[in-house]
Design a protein around this nucleic acid. Sequence first.
DNA 1: CCAATTCTAAAGCAAACCTAAAGAAAACAC
DNA 2: GTGTTTTCTTTAGGTTTGCTTTAGAATTGG
Lengths: 225, 225
Amino acid sequence: MKVLIIEDEIELLIVISNYLTKEKYVCVLAENFAKAREKLSIYEYDIILLDIGLPDGNGLKLIDTIKKYNHYAGLIIISAKNSLDDKISGLDKGADDYMTKPFQLSELNSRIRALLRRRQLDSSNTLTFNELTIDALAKTLIINGQEIKLTKKEYDMILYFVINKNRVLTKEAIAEHLWDDNIDLADSYDFIYTHLNNIRRKIKNAGGTDYITTIYGMGYKFTDQ
Amino acid sequence: MKVLIIEDEIELLIVISNYLTKEKYVCVLAENFAKAREKLSIYEYDIILLDIGLPDGNGLKLIDTIKKYNHYAGLIIISAKNSLDDKISGLDKGADDYMTKPFQLSELNSRIRALLRRRQLDSSNTLTFNELTIDALAKTLIINGQEIKLTKKEYDMILYFVINKNRVLTKEAIAEHLWDDNIDLADSYDFIYTHLNNIRRKIKNAGGTDYITTIYGMGYKFTDQ
DNA sequence: CCAATTCTAAAGCAAACCTAAAGAAAACAC
DNA sequence: GTGTTTTCTTTAGGTTTGCTTTAGAATTGG
């Protein structure tokens, strides 16, 4: 997942970048209007964080540029707490969410995740990859029209994989996400192995392909190709 | 079909009302908390549109009132784009769908249609699944022409299941929907188990099939197949 | 005050989860 | 290349957790 961070406070820019990099996002940085335009014209991004209080040009104008170059990117606006008007006009212009400074990095992370998830869910709350469909309301996995019965842990796990498709998920990340806090990380990851094996077996038995590839020594990755 | 529209922006209220009236819905309007309560106590509605950003009282509180008076009404929440948290707690409390402002009227229409379709309330306010029929007016359950006597809790519960068919309903959601506010969620869910068991026994004794499947660790799901 | 309903408690049961251990595969060392 | 180490896969079974069922106590409503 590629994130463009547009923020004029260099310190904050670095902090956010470091945090998101640790969370396995690829970060591209822009500290002013000009740089932002430049970066926008080069790549496409999945998520754009935009501070609308830029010194060299109103960040709101950037929204138009973003829409022009990056039609599908999720846009999260960052603003100082008092500039309510900016926020509102930003949202009118097509931002998906906003945050006020100061904020917790963990909150930023969860908002990014929520946004990515919302973008992937279609109107009937399902996620589809080739022959594989996850129904978020029925909490089922459907392969070629056939409903696969998953346990809670299995469902949570495959959902976590699918939402973060094409990203390597370390065992640490999986453990932290699926189990309360730190389920003693000194321990082994046998429980992950077991559940993953159960998922793979069920998918295989239903005639589905195993999209979960093992990245030896690192973790796992759900690839849609 | 009767629609109650709760919205404080008068302009928007009128626009929605005009549109839905043209689509052959009967519209009742409420522009604030007090009016909404009043209208809720007078009639029953098929669909309720609720803007949770009301100025004179949090719209979320209205959800409880809605549940009290209008048990089987479909509830669609309307919210400003930024109030993510409201959206989420609204859905948790038993809303069936939500929309963010601004929205297309055509989208509203299709969401209402989808909701009505899902509920499958016919003209005589009954819901039928194979040999099982729920009469929302007489508040009875009919199996193969035989009328089953249900208590209020049992009736509310089976209705909640049926109108949310094919969705997993967590015990938390069931508790919040059928009991006032938080009936101390730290407690056990024994009361759910008991009532559910009573429903299943009555259906079974009447020769009906048990469409309520237990999703271990997640909740329950009413499946029509 | 009585009858119906709702809730509490507890025993028994079933599913899911985790642990452990053996085998396989990949990476590493030589 | 071969042996060793590390990491992952797979399977089995014990433990834990959550669900069912029943009985009866508490509550509610006429």
